[in-house]
Amino acid sequence: MAETTVAKKSIKFVITRQDKPDSQPYKETFEIPYRPNMNVISALMEIQRNPVKDDGNKTSPVCWDSNCLEEVCGACSMVINGKPRQACTALIDKLEQPIRLEPMRTFPVVRDLVINRDRMFNALKRVKAWIPIDGTYDLGPGPRMKETKRQWAYELSKCMTCGVCLESCPNVNERNTFIGPAAISQVRLFNAHPTGEMNMEERLETLMSDGGIEGCGNSQNCVRACPKGIPLTTSIAAINKDTTKHMFKQWLGM
């Protein structure tokens, strides 16, 4: 029987690694066998199974964060070929090789590709991105939301706190106190809700204090980077309008 030799396809990775939060990052190159329909997560799993660099030397398995694997949890965000995005929806067939993986350095790096997104969750706590309905008695049903409003508010609710907008923003850095686009859009979402609206001023005042909305420089990278297509710059402009109005109301005592 004639022997057929099929060229074994492989995938090349250059991964920026870091052992400890305060240690120096370094790069390692990997070459792993190709399988159809792979994504960056399944490729990282392959490296985890056989942590050998392309020069044949063994190394420690690469660490990463992931959960849902369907782009709704935001945990696997990393910088892939220079752009922040989710590793689960980064399909190998659509990526240029070698595939460069880096952590999102806007956030503290825990290890390799794992980052700490605490600042985002703290921002949501600061702006009270929830609807307070707890009480000592049944408050009854709240007011209804207009359908047209519900439709755009639903888009805002798709935010998964993944951090891609903060990573792409030139004003989210250690010299700037900007809260970031995600939390501002959530203020718009909860202020749009008929019950959430009752705490509107409180949320606006938080954004009008230090480390609020003031740091936005209108680079509009966030809206281009958002994997969920959330109209972040519209949210920021709408909240600019609301905070401006609130500022004048405060001054005039209206």
Binding site: G82, P170, N173, R175, N218, S219, Q220, N221
Partner: peptide, 17 residues
């Protein structure tokens, strides 16, 4: 207080920024 990241995100508005 601003970083310049037009190399990574070369969009028109980011250039304007």
């Amino acid at each position: 207080q601003s970083n310049l990241n037009t190399g990574q995100f070369s969009y028109g508005r980011n250039w304007a920024f």
